[in-house]
Amino acid sequence: MNPQWKSFLLAEHAVFENGDRIVFSKTQLDRPHIYPISHLGVLSVSGKDAAKLLQGQATCNVFEVTETQARTGAFCNPKGRAIATFLLAKQADDYLLVLPLELLEPVKNRLQKYVLRSDIRLTDRSDDLCLLGISGNEPVAERRFATCRNEGGVTISLGSSPPRTLTIADTEHAITLWSEHLTEKGFAPGNSEDWRLLDLLAGIPWLSRAASEEHVPQMLNLDKLGGVSFTKGCYTGQEIVARTHYLGKAKRALFLAECALDAAPEPNASILDRNGGEQSRGQVLTAIGHGGICHLLAVLLISENGEYDLMLKDHPEATLRLLPLDYA
Results as ranks from 00 to 15, higher is better:
P3I: 03
W5P: 03
W5N: 05
S7F: 05
L9E: 04
L10W: 00
H13V: 00
V15Y: 00
G19W: 11
I22R: 09
S25K: 15
D30H: 13
H39P: 00
G41V: 13
L43R: 01
L53A: 06
Q57F: 13
A58H: 12
T59R: 02
T59C: 10
N61F: 01
F63V: 04
F63G: 03
E64Y: 03
T66G: 01
E67T: 15
Q69A: 12
T72E: 09
A74D: 09
G80K: 05
I83K: 05
F86D: 00
L88K: 04
A89F: 00
K90T: 00
A92D: 03
L96Y: 01
V98H: 01
L99Q: 01
P100L: 00
L103F: 06
L104G: 07
L104A: 07
E105R: 14
K108M: 13
N109R: 11
N109E: 09
R117T: 10
S118A: 09
D119P: 09
I120A: 04
R121D: 11
L122R: 10
T123V: 15
L129S: 08
G136L: 11
G136R: 12
E138I: 08
R143D: 08
T147R: 04
G152W: 03
G153E: 03
L158V: 02
G159L: 06
S160T: 08
P163V: 03
T165L: 05
L166V: 12
T167W: 02
D170W: 08
D170H: 13
E172D: 14
H173A: 14
A174L: 02
W178T: 10
L182I: 13
T183A: 00
K185N: 03
F187I: 12
A188D: 15
S192V: 01
E193I: 14
E193Y: 13
L200C: 08
L201K: 15
A202Y: 05
A202M: 10
G203M: 13
P205I: 03
A210P: 01
E213Q: 09
E214N: 12
L225M: 13
V228S: 03
K232H: 11
E239K: 10
V241P: 02
L247R: 15
G248M: 08
K249D: 11
A250L: 06
R252H: 15
L254E: 02
F255T: 05
C259N: 04
D262N: 08
G277P: 02
R281N: 00
R281F: 04
G282I: 10
A287D: 11
I288M: 12
G291S: 15
I293Q: 10
C294R: 03
L297R: 01
L301T: 13
S303L: 06
Y308C: 11
D314G: 06
D314A: 12
E317H: 12
L322Q: 14
L323A: 09
A328N: 14
A328L: 09
A328Q: 15
